[in-house]
Write a protein that binds this DNA or RNA. Sequence first.
DNA 1: ATAACATATGAACACATGTTCATATGTACT
DNA 2: AGTACATATGAACATGTGTTCATATGTTAT
Lengths: 123, 123
Amino acid sequence: MKQKKKSIIPEACSCTIIHQDRIDRASKQMPKTEVLFNLAELFKSFGDTTRIRILYSLFKEEMCVCDLCAFLGMTQSSISHQLRILKLSRLVRSRKAGKVVYYSLEDVHIKDIFKLGLIHINE
Amino acid sequence: MKQKKKSIIPEACSCTIIHQDRIDRASKQMPKTEVLFNLAELFKSFGDTTRIRILYSLFKEEMCVCDLCAFLGMTQSSISHQLRILKLSRLVRSRKAGKVVYYSLEDVHIKDIFKLGLIHINE
DNA sequence: ATAACATATGAACACATGTTCATATGTACT
DNA sequence: AGTACATATGAACATGTGTTCATATGTTAT
């Protein structure tokens, strides 16, 4: 009798009913761990109401930090901290004009991603 | 996934250079706070490597909890907890077959959202 | 130079989140 | 009935995260 193949990391799961064929197929179409990590990081940037609201505010045109504070009713520090995160994720870019810093969307795909997200919510 | 509701405080910003016209225009195309909150919740579900890996594993076909544990090299408890979150977000559905529970994707848009996310990362 | 202002940032805090451990639930089989 | 197994779940723990506060940086005007 042929023995059942055990899991990749033996101590992770004690189950015996494992569909090795399914695992093999899933394995083939799985992106690299690093890619999945970066993807999770990206969605993490979208996973906060304040950041979502900032991005939506910039959908049509650029705004300065001041505008965002006033519009979203939040402290300047809070907005600045979140803008920093969005900038690190390459979701917004900044343009300096004297004392004022204007922020705008860096990626056109953001709108499409949000659109798909909204479809899911409304289903 | 829970998130604290943030209060809107008018005196949050002491800036004087506010572009009221920009704020008015942004205001017009801004979805309701509740919608933005739900959108953030959805992306929060995508914002974890384990959950991203689970979703990717289910791209082609359903898998049981056991398969996921073995494939992803994680404990059964950990996978179960994450599946619960994904189910609450209506991203996966479950089907019981005796002792075994099979999970599959509930929303066809997930793939498209991931696709767009990957485009952003690779830019 | 000094003052005023717009923005950035480090530290501290409270709260959220993911994993682990122990255990409960539910199903199949003897 | 009992045993074995697949999955679910509550509690505890450590880590991560968003806001606040204080303060720093950089720019403009006097």
